[in-house]
Nucleic acid binder design. Sequence first.
DNA 1: TGCTATGTTATTTTT
DNA 2: TAACATAGCA
Length: 676
Amino acid sequence: MTKQSSKWLKDLNPEQKEAVQIIKGPMLVLAGAGSGKTLVITRRIAYMQSKGIKPTSILAVTFTNKAANEMRERLADMIGQAAQKVTLSTFHSLGLMMLRTELARRKKSSRFVVYDTADQLACLRELNRRIRLGRSFDLGAILGRISAYKNAFLEPKDVCPTEDEYDQAAAVFYPAYLEAMQAYAAVDFDDLICLPTKMMEKSEACRKRWSTRFRHVLVDEYQDTNGAQLRMLRGLAGKHRNLCVVGDDDQSIYGWRGAEVRNILQFEKDFPGCRTIYLMRNYRSVASVLTLANQVISQNENRHPKKLLPTRQSGERVKIVVSEDGESEAVWVAERVAQLVEDKRYKFSQVAVLYRSNLLSRTLETAFRSNRIPYRVHGGQSFFDRKEVKDLIAYLKYCANPADSISLRRIINWPSRGIGPTTLGRLSSWAETQDVPLFRAVGRANKILAPADRALSAIAGFNALITKTRRTLKGGVALANSVTKLVEQIDMHEEINKACESGKEVERRWESITDFIDGLKAYAKNKPKASLRDFLSQISLNELEEDSADESGNRATLSTLHGAKGLEFPLVFIIGLEEGYLPHDRVLNPHATDVQSGDIAEERRLCYVGITRARDELVLTRADKRLVNGKFRERAPSRFITELPDDILEVDDLTQALAPQDARKKLAEIKALLNN
DNA sequence: TGCTATGTTATTTTT
DNA sequence: TAACATAGCA
């Protein structure tokens, strides 16, 4: 073995070594939480390179862009420049890249835009006007079903009729949706996986191109892949079989959006002769945390039975703190954090508070603010989801792709310029009968509307604005300038002014716009060659890095349990350990609209993921009652706690903290204080 | 056409 | 509770 190669095996345990060293053929790495998974993946790539494999022939797929960036950084620390040559991306950006490349190859236009969920819903809303099924449907539920059809590669004609009325509605919407998306020249997230996969399945030459380009494929978080992604992998790596997947069935938490745990449980069947490696030594958490984690997850069935093995000392017993209500829970956590930081036990940045639902972050934020604890909320509403930013993006999308009627509808009367529903209705029915995109009608409005129509001049103004903007939007550094101009021309500031109640609100919203333009500037500076369309797809795929300046700041993290996947913190709080949150109410009482009913096992895995984020100290909390939908409700402790052996948790019941005589004493103390 | 008031209605997780 | 939609009114 060369010196170069052995360098990448240093300080690894035997299983890790094996996972790094065997680079040919299919491999399944079952990597428990905190078992050095990222280390193994990056070392493996470095090792491959040292063995003469070209970095350009390596593809590593991760679940989120953040994970991809992180991995690239760690890889760059190891192999420097060569790290840039490795293709490291999410399934979705990989699919987009493949799609663009293939279309260019076939000399077809790649003038499409990527629709995010909000755009998809707008598209369905549009169709809903036309389709008008007897009653109103939850369009989100329909969208979920359409997504399921797509991921199963079902054509509208293949959709089997069922009794469920949502299934029936979705079957009606499905062909219309496909048609509309085609007309808008738009693709959705599912298309980014399915279209390139279909291309590979249809054309052996195409499949070969990609599987030769990527001779070695690595997939992280394999437990979160869905059926379509498996099919994509089959196309890429089915022949050369140099496919290494890494994951943990116990951390599968995206079943609700179509992830198939089955993929990881059956990998050995899908790729016979595969090597399976267990990474079960945990280097992250103290033993007490691992005991709890193992206990919680062992209640699940249908899993590879396994246990995390501690390598660190025992640590303190995990506490469960019981508060009176949600507010006192949040206050207790905030005060505790403040105390521990003041005692120099932790820095703010070492602390995370995790919860099942975003709803719970509100009270927490209030409590943190009043305790002057700096924090950042991970997840939640994204910057690009804010209304004003979305409006601005709609302008850009329309400029990039006039066929995008959804964006056109969004902006044609925003800010209001007197092009109301009546006018729009006339234009769109003309477009529909002529079977052309809406923008054609907008372009020829003077032929369609009555000559005296007051909307005509408004439309002319709108068209002029777009033409002018489009000319300047060619990309590069000029991008930010022309967006600034656009913002001035539509007088966005005034528009925001009108829409807001308070001056503070105006300030906040206006800041989003300036932030957006700043982001655009930074982007153009980084990638001077990038086009407007590149920029837009990066936004849809969440690929833009957030400002890294405040990431390094010393702040506590508030995050959903889902958002915390892959992260670790010395001190972790998990709040709301109650029936209704963990497991979530939606799982206990499924709705008729749900595509698939969730399952308790996934909720338990979510709990497990949360627990295993903690390095040194873990605190669980719950409240006896809580404000739910504006009403106080009694809350029962989570079954994930009550099903555990008694001695595993230390109970700290704040509601029982004061016996009556103590309470009287306390009261006297307070009175004395007041009298002073 | 736009605004306001009223009612309604849902409240999980996100590439 | 609060966000959102729709109907009704100016």
